[in-house]
């Protein structure tokens, strides 16, 4: 009787499927990962414990945003780009001049962000600190009326 010659077992680790496994994992992470917008404009809300000065409507620069998205700066219509030109001479005279942004309830949110961004940019470009406050409806009703 003839015996079969035993095949010698290979002592290598089969790595050919490793790449397939790795690519499957890659596909999983690619699909679940989002490069969603994770950046934004920061806004430190006023805290009670800090001695935040009460902002008086009369001595502040009032930026109103109308439902149409137009701006009224101290009752005068103005474009967003012109706010800083209007503000700088006033800030030179009084660096603590408060600026109030008061959007109409029906004004688009994007416009308020645009004005806020413009002031923050102005702060950065001119190296000044602007005292920006964006009071909410409730605060306006509580303190001003």
């Amino acid at each position: 009787m003839q015996l079969k010659v035993k095949k010698e077992a290979s002592d290598e680790i089969p790595t050919s499927s490793m790449a397939d496994i790795a690519f499957l994992l890659i596909i999983y992470f690619m699909i679940t990962t989002t490069f969603a917008a994770t950046r934004g404009l920061d806004w430190a809300l006023p805290q009670d414990d800090e001695d935040t000065p009460e902002v008086e409507k009369e001595e502040a620069v009032l930026i109103e945003i109308l439902p149409s998205g137009e701006l009224l700066v101290d009752q005068d219509p103005m474009e967003t780009e012109d706010i800083m030109d209007y503000l700088l001479p006033k800030l030179e005279r009084n660096p603590k001049k408060p600026v109030i942004i008061q959007p109409d309830p029906e004004a688009p949110y994007g416009k308020m962000v645009e004005v806020f961004d413009e002031l923050r940019q102005g702060e950065e470009d001119e190296g000044v600190k602007i005292n920006i406050s964006i009071p909410t409806r409730r605060e306006i009703e509580m303190f001003w009326y």
Partner: peptide, 17 residues
């Protein structure tokens, strides 16, 4: 959304404050 009426955002900010 940038077209959201401000009163909704105002309510949220007020709640956060």
């Amino acid at each position: 959304d940038k077209e959201t009426p401000y009163r909704i955002v105002d309510g949220i900010i007020d709640a956060l404050k």
